[in-house]
């Protein structure tokens, strides 16, 4: 059991994090940006859980990951409510078109 080295978990997490970052940068849609953020939060949880393998008595990493999941759930509900309000006001989900405060 547990023959996978720690670094492989970290590499998978790093790859998912960077793909999530690229999604957040490239998508011109509020919900696309949210998808990228969710992916990044998940990849961080992989790191925490991979390190938590070596802490079976206290499992601090897994508890931290649990709280990250809770905060992510709270974040996505509020973000979606805000996106719906912005869509109702601007009739657009493109972040580039929401620029009333610019200039």
């Amino acid at each position: 059991m547990n023959t996978i080295p720690l670094e492989h978990y970290l590499f998978v997490a790093a790859a998912l994090f960077c793909i999530g970052l690229a999604i957040s940068i490239t998508k011109r849609h509020f919900i696309g940006i949210l998808l990228g953020i969710e992916l990044m939060l998940n990849s961080v949880n992989i790191n925490l859980i991979a390190f938590s393998r070596h802490d079976p008595e206290r499992l601090s990493g897994q508890l931290f990951a649990l709280f990250v999941i809770v905060v992510a759930a709270a974040e996505v509900t509020v973000a979606l409510a805000i996106i719906l309000r912005v869509y109702g006001h601007y009739k657009s989900v493109d972040p580039d078109e929401v620029k009333e405060l610019k200039n």
Binding site: N2, I4, Y9, V12, L16, N42, S43, N45, I46, I49, A50, S52, R53, P56, Q62, A65, L66, I69, A72, A73
Partner: peptide, 20 residues
């Protein structure tokens, strides 16, 4: 990602991940 959690020995978090 949930399957990776199971392989890292975090069964409860894997189920939480799928449900949440």
């Amino acid at each position: 990602v949930a399957a990776l959690y199971v392989l890292a020995g975090a069964d409860f978090l894997a189920v939480t991940q799928i449900m949440v």
